[in-house]
């Protein structure tokens, strides 16, 4: 019975994924490996041969590499701040969690309203007399500004996701551990790095994986702020699927996104290995 139990528990989810994910997924995989009914790798060579591929690839990687660590630190800071607080904890948490409810399309809209020429940033600077007339931020020549704007928007939008997971995890760490460490003279920083972080490993792992998966699919915010000047993998997937009507190449792009996501997730799983049952 006990040996069958885990499989029984996994059964509903597995069956569900088999039907609704693996079946269509298999069809798309086949699509990425065929062209006109024949098995070929041409979709992949077409993809890598396109002049935008490597830009899109590296943009996606760089965005992830910059955004995710910043978010991790911010999420940890937010969660710790909330834990320290004695009053107003629920209200503050709610405020921090607000971006959760905002779709990436809406987030792109908000940040475009801030950065565009007649936008809020220019209005603020104008009100303080810093500038006489609107400055241009999102021009195609200043790619790094677009990149920065996308980073800010992504950090704003998706930090809450990590924070909520981390807050839930922190709530499970017994207070006694921290109290004991304090008795032995550990500073707040030492307590954080030696007690809280190690015990938080399961939540950190989950938060990081989920965030990385979404980072590789970044699209709507980039589209809103950078248009096509800052190509990303997901944007190219859409482009090939719908504008260029070449589903094979689009499927190849999707496979690249999948490969990157799985690879990075495995790295996180290894780095933050969680032992069974967390016998602490």
């Amino acid at each position: 019975m006990n040996r069958a139990l885990p499989y029984l528990l996994l059964l509903p989810a597995s069956l569900f994924l088999l039907v609704f994910f693996f079946y269509p997924f298999g069809l798309v995989v086949v699509e990425s490996l065929t062209r006109g009914g024949e098995w070929t790798t041409e979709n992949f060579t077409r993809m890598t041969g396109h002049w935008k591929f490597s830009t899109a690839f590296w943009n996606t990687i760089w965005l992830t590499a910059i955004v995710v660590p910043v978010q991790l630190i911010m999420a940890l800071a937010m969660a710790s701040v909330v834990q320290k607080l004695k009053t107003g904890r629920a209200g503050l948490l709610y405020i921090f969690a607000i971006p959760l409810g905002i779709s990436d399309l809406a987030a792109g809209l908000v940040w475009l309203a801030i950065f565009e020429q007649s936008g809020f940033l220019n209005s603020i600077l104008h009100a303080f007399g810093v500038i006489d007339r609107p400055q241009l931020y999102l021009g195609y020549q200043s790619l790094w500004v677009i990149f920065l704007a996308v980073c800010l928007a992504e950090i704003w939008r998706a930090t809450a996701i990590m924070m909520v997971i981390i807050v839930a995890g922190m709530g499970l760490i017994p207070k006694e551990y921290n109290e004991a460490a304090e008795v032995f003279g550990a500073s707040a920083w030492q307590r954080f790095t030696r007690v809280t972080l190690p015990l938080l490993r399961p939540s950190l792992q989950t938060a990081l994986i989920l965030r990385i998966l979404m980072a590789f699919e970044v699209f709507a915010v980039v589209m809103a702020l950078g248009g096509t000047t800052l190509p990303v993998l997901m944007g190219e997937t859409f482009q090939w699927q719908f504008q260029l009507q070449d589903r094979g190449v689009a499927a190849a792009y999707a496979m690249v996104i999948l490969g990157l996501s799985v690879a990075f997730s495995l790295v996180v799983l290894r780095l933050l290995h969680v032992p069974k049952g967390a016998r602490i």
């Binding site: 994910f21 079946y23 269509p24 859409f238 689009a250 996104i257 799985v262 799983l269």
Partner: peptide, 21 residues
């Protein structure tokens, strides 16, 4: 294997799955 399977689900762009679905 199950864990990777679950991760894959989220890592694959939905718009491509939409047609077979």
């Amino acid at each position: 294997f199950f864990r990777v399977l679950v991760i894959m689900t989220r890592a694959f762009p939905l718009p491509l799955l939409a047609l077979p679905l």
